[in-house]
Every structure is written in C-alpha cells, then in structure tokens.
C-alpha cells in the first residue's frame, strides 16, 4: 500500500463517515429529546435517495403516496383521540398538515414529475415529501406511548423500521436506483482526485453540523430543545412543551436524513432496504459517544468510516465483522469507565 492508496481510502472513509456523522447526530438528538432510539432513521435516507432518483427519471415517487397514507392515519389518530369538539383553528391546522399537505403533494407530484424539472426543484420536492415523514411517524408510533420505558420505545422503533422496509419494497420496488450527480466535476488536490459530488457532500455535512451548533446555542427554539433534552420535567416547569420539542426534533431528524439521502444518491446505488446498514453505522457511532455528546458522535462516526474503508481494502470479506467487532472493546471500556444506572 502506498500513500496514494492510503489517501484515497481516507477520502472514502471521510465520505462514508460524513453520512454516518449526520445520522449519529440525529440518533443523539432524538434520544436526548424523546428517549427514542430511532432505528428507521436510515430508512428515511434511502427513501430520500429513491425519491430523488424517481423524480429525475420523470416518475412520480411512491413515497408521495406513502406520505398520504401516513397523513390519513395521523388524522384518524387525532380525531379518534378527541373527547370534545376542538377549536376550529386547531382542527384546520391539524387536518391541513395531515391531509391537505400530503394530498396536494401527491397530486402535484404526479403532474410535475414528467415535466423534466431542474435539479433544485427535484431536491425541494424530495425534501417536502420526506421531511414530514419524521413527525408523522412520531405522531403515529411514539406519541401514544410517551411515558413508556426506553426498552418499549426501542422495540416499537424496531417495529416501525420493519414496517418502513416493507412499505419501501411496496412503493419503490426491489430494484436499486442511482441519481445523477448534482455537481459532476472533479477536484485535483495534489495526487488526490476528488469527485465533485463527494466534495459537495463533505461541505454540506460541515455546514449542517455548523448550523446545528448555531441552532442549539443561538436560537430560542434550539435552546428549548436542549432544555427538554436535559430535563423534561424541568423544561415543562418553565413552560416548554415536551410534545412540541419531540415533534421539532423529528422534523430536524427527517430533514437531516433527507439531505443525507439526497447527497449519497449519486455516489452509490440505493435500494429500498439500503438504509438499515447506513443507519446501523450511525447508531454504532452514537453508542460509542454514549448517546450524549454531539461532537463525540461526529468524531466516532468519522473514525468508523475510515476503519471501514481500510477494512474493505485489507480484508473485504470481513469488512462488517471488523467494523462491528471493533465496537465491542470500546463499549466494554465505556461501561467500565463510566458506570451508570440502566434506567434514568
């Protein structure tokens, strides 16, 4: 192995690590605010990539119809939970979000998709289709069990992942898709050749992480989210709605997952079930960071990506074994160095 190969492997590791980092941040965020270990996170990445690829091919993506189904289910849940007639404004807002938005999207996308739209329009459409899936899923699966234990929430989350995968097969089919690069050029950096799309991916990841940092430290909404994460009861005492915080966290997670999907769709072939393994790597990075620290999660995600790249080079047959095997000693070390209660 010479230095050029090492540089290429590091580059590959950084690209994969960047995606894992985005997902790891989502895992940490959702766990902190809602105590949910959100396994379907990766599925949203795949859905976003597949939606973008479908739009590029001029086909109405199945995810638009999926969103309609989720929306109808959410609306039914809301109506069934009513004890007395709600204020008209509340009803209008809810039905607007759960029924009108997905329906308009679905009908609109069927007319818009064959029209050979510019890339940015495809990306915007993908975002508005995939992002609401986050809060919709939260409303459907997790809001009704707000006070459940972490374990019960985790089991539900695995269930949601299985349902999502089945729906993905139904709406996208078994074949893989790849979208065209948003930026097709290459950058020459000494002996390194960096694909434009890869560079774009890394820049976007950095920007998103930077924006997240600003959001949490500089804005009221971000500080409220953080407060809800630190102590739910404390936050409620000072007038922060934990329910709203949960929803906002899921919007954020949906947004990040959708952007990650849009960014990797041109780099790899995505399948309806590709998301799980990507999500799992992000999950591992979040675990290594103790599900608590954002910088820790980002750092371990990038290290994980680089380890993976080198493992693929040295022993491709054992790539996943090496990646997941290395997590064990780290977990052991973590549990020995900072012991804490099972339930908190």
């Amino acid at each position: 192995m010479d230095s050029t190969i090492a540089l290429f492997l590091v580059q590959d590791g950084l690209i994969n690590g960047a995606i894992y980092a985005l997902l790891a941040v989502c895992f940490v965020l959702l766990f902190a605010v809602t105590r949910i270990i959100f396994i379907p996170q990766g599925d949203f990445v795949a859905f976003a990539g597949l939606t973008l690829a479908a739009l590029e091919m001029g086909v109405a993506p199945g995810s638009a119809l999926l969103l309609v189904c989720l929306g109808v289910a959410c609306a039914l849940f809301d109506l069934a939970g009513l004890r007395n007639w709600p204020p008209a404004g509340w009803l209008l807002r809810r039905l607007g979000a759960y029924l009108a938005l997905p329906l308009v999207l679905w009908l609109g996308v069927r007319d818009l998709a064959p029209m050979d739209l510019p890339v940015w329009a495809d990306i915007c459409l993908t975002l508005v289709i995939v992002v609401p899936m986050g809060p919709f899923t939260y409303r459907l699966a997790f809001e009704p069990m707000r006070n459940a234990s972490i374990l019960a929430l985790l089991i539900t989350s695995v269930g949601v992942h299985l349902v999502m995968m089945g729906l993905g097969l139904l709406f996208f089919g078994a074949e893989g898709y790849r979208s065209t690069p948003i930026w097709g050029g290459t950058i020459l950096l000494g002996p390194m050749m960096i694909q434009g799309q890869s560079a774009l991916l890394m820049v976007c990841t950095l920007v998103i992480l930077g924006l997240l940092w600003c959001f949490f430290t500089r804005t009221l909404a971000g500080k409220a989210l953080q407060a809800a994460a630190v102590s739910a009861r404390g936050a409620e005492l000072v007038g922060i709605s934990v329910e709203t915080a949960g929803r906002r966290a899921f919007v954020l997670a949906g947004l990040i997952a959708a952007i990650a999907g849009i960014l990797i769709a041109p780099i790899t072939t995505l399948y309806y079930d590709s998301g799980f393994l990507i999500g799992l790597k992000g999950f591992v990075a979040a675990i290594v960071a103790g599900f608590a620290s954002f910088p820790g999660a980002v750092f371990s995600a990038i290290v994980l990506g680089i380890i993976e790249a080198f493992a693929a080079f040295w022993a491709s047959a054992f790539k996943e074994v090496i990646v997941f095997g290395l997590v064990l000693p780290i977990l052991l070390w973590r549990s020995l160095t900072n012991p804490h209660d099972e339930e908190h």
Partner: peptide
C-alpha cells in the same frame, strides 16, 4: 480476490486493491 455485499454503499477499498 475481493468480496462485497449487496447492500454496500461503497466498494472503494476493494476497487483500489484490484487496481493496485
């Protein structure tokens, strides 16, 4: 002789080894 999985998102490592 290299291996990859159906769900792999990157085969850069394997490809580098092959080309090398």
């Amino acid at each position: 002789v290299e291996r990859f999985a159906r769900t792999d998102t990157s085969v850069t490592g394997q490809v580098l080894k092959l080309v090398a």
